[in-house]
């Protein structure tokens, strides 16, 4: 059934988590391309046939204009009708192949286009180096695209002299209020030396406190 493979590609993208990529489906992709070539192999002889028949038609008409008997004219009309019907059926056949080709093209483009968008969004988040788990899901061309796009973005940022991949979320107060849960003792933080005693309530830089919070040694206080 024409187009089924192509639908697989589109479905694959549509069913993946937004922002996530599945491994580039080289197999199905190649199969769709092959199908396209198959369509071309059918299209070309059909188009040639149509052209030949149209030429025949034209010749018949010229003949008619040069004068014919009643009988000859009758025959010519019958032959013309046969040729016209052959042309029509070839045109329908060609149309099917053409439309199938178009559909395959659109699906292939959609697959690549949509993946490209995810890849670009990654470029905003990871600067210029892709984490391995993501890299192995990309095709060779996609890896190249990522690099090129990262470059284009870097060029713009250099031109306007502004780092645009930072500050992705609105800024918050850099300081937070915390309660110390364990007796940690004296530590040197980015802006102060603090004595982290159990039960103490302190005002620390968020970045300093994060590691203690994730380890359960501190908790953030809201009011």
């Amino acid at each position: 059934m024409y187009g089924r493979k192509a639908t697989e590609l589109v479905k694959e993208f549509a069913s993946s988590e937004p922002g996530q990529l599945s491994t580039f489906n080289n197999d199905v992709f190649a199969q769709v391309l092959e199908e396209c070539n198959g369509h071309l192999l059918h299209l070309e002889p059909l188009m040639m046939n149509i052209q030949e028949n149209e030429n025949k038609l034209r010749d018949k008409r010229s003949e008619e204009e040069m004068g014919m008997s009643e009988d000859e004219r009758g025959n010519s009309e019958a032959e013309k009708m046969l040729i016209q019907s052959a042309i029509k059926s070839d045109q329908f056949g060609a149309l099917i192949h053409h439309l199938s080709l178009l559909r395959n093209k659109r699906c292939l483009m959609a697959y690549v286009y949509n993946r490209a968008e995810v890849i670009r969004n990654l470029g905003w988040m990871v600067d210029s180096v892709l984490p391995e788990e993501i890299e192995e899901k990309l095709s060779g061309t996609e890896k190249e695209y990522f690099k090129k796009h990262a470059n284009t973005l870097q060029s713009y940022m250099a031109e306007v002299d502004l780092h645009l991949t930072v500050d992705m979320v609105p800024p918050k107060d850099p300081y937070i209020k915390v309660r110390v849960l364990d007796d940690i003792g004296e530590v040197v933080l980015s802006d102060q030396v603090a004595n982290l005693a159990r039960h103490a309530i302190m005002f620390l830089r968020r970045t300093d406190a994060e590691q203690y919070i994730t380890q359960g040694q501190m908790e953030e206080l809201t009011s």
Partner: peptide
């Protein structure tokens, strides 16, 4: 209309 999440150019049907 290709059922797709992203905005696509509408396929205006066969041109031939």
């Amino acid at each position: 209309h290709v059922p797709n999440r992203q905005p696509q150019a509408t396929n205006r049907g066969p041109r031939r």
